[in-house]
Computed example of a mutant assay.
Amino acid sequence: MPCVSSRRGRRIVAVVLLLVAVTVGFFVAGLRNDIIITRYQLGVAGVQSPIRVAVIADTHSCRYDDDQQQIANMVRAENPDVITLVGDIVDDDLSYERGLDTVRHMPEIAPTFYVAGNHEYWSGRAREVKKELSGMGIHVLAGDTEEVDVNGQPLLVSGIDDPDADIYDPQTGNSFDDQAERLRTVSSETPRLLLSHRPERTDLYKSLDVDVIFSGHAHGGQWRIPGLLPNGLYAPNQGFFPKLSRGIHDLGGGRELIISRGLSRESTSIPRLFNPPEILIVDLVPA
């Protein structure tokens, strides 16, 4: 009997150790924070030859290597035609300067366009952020539309502020609704991008003459479990089990919403799970 009990005890210990190893392995794999490149190709009416767009979202003043240039170096290696910064580049708690340094060299790579996110407004320094970025040569959009030449073909880039601007920095004549109305007045056969921090504002996007909308904000739903929670557990302004946290979504009428899971790391109190920070590289090709 003692031998049987001993064998049973060893089996129990082995099972426990195996479960511990699997659990540790699960979380080690799930908590990896290496930046990845996610690639999409999208046919767009009016595009004559491929246009490569880099999408940067939700850097939140996080640390990226000692010189803060990891993201810029990764983007440079992709040789984009246009770079889009879709908000929360600067955080309201972490270093203001570090947030700016993350994107400082982007205009040296390609024409760079920016819209503010909620955290720039929460910081109380949104106007200062916009001034600093504009001084770097970054195009700051707030209800504006600009045209950029990409290899001889025109491309329109529009952008709108985060709606929290109305709460933290209200401006007469430049509210979220004012900006939206200005964007509605633009209609063109030229391919048109829209930068907007929040993905859930789909009613607005469907009212605009745009081809592709780039957003962030949802952080990929923060906790993702392959096969169970592909869109994550929770996203701001969507709640639990969000539908719009990543990937490409057809909004109808030739409009496509592309959502970045973002690049935040230490700025969030809850760590990312099976949700590595990402840079989007989107190739727009003839439809």
Rank of each mutant, 00 (worst) to 15 (best):
M1R: 08
C3A: 14
S5D: 09
R7I: 12
V13M: 13
V16A: 14
L18S: 15
L19T: 04
V20T: 09
V22I: 15
T23E: 10
T23C: 09
F27R: 04
F27N: 08
G30C: 09
L31E: 02
R32T: 09
N33A: 13
D34H: 12
S49V: 07
S61H: 04
D67K: 06
D67Q: 13
D67V: 10
M74N: 08
P80V: 01
L85D: 02
Y96V: 10
G99M: 07
T112R: 01
V115C: 04
H119G: 03
R125N: 14
H139G: 02
E146Q: 15
D149V: 06
D149M: 11
P154A: 01
G159H: 05
I160E: 01
D166N: 11
N174E: 08
S175M: 06
D177W: 14
Q179W: 09
V186W: 01
T190N: 00
R192K: 13
L193G: 04
H197F: 08
R201S: 08
S207L: 11
D209A: 13
V212R: 03
A218K: 00
H219Y: 06
G220E: 00
G221M: 02
A235M: 02
K243S: 13
R246T: 07
G247V: 11
H249M: 10
L251W: 14
G252N: 15
I259G: 04
R261E: 01
R261W: 01
L263V: 05
R265W: 06
S267K: 00
N275D: 07
P277N: 10
E278D: 03
V282Q: 10
D283V: 05
D283Q: 13
D283W: 06
L284F: 01
L284M: 05
P286E: 03
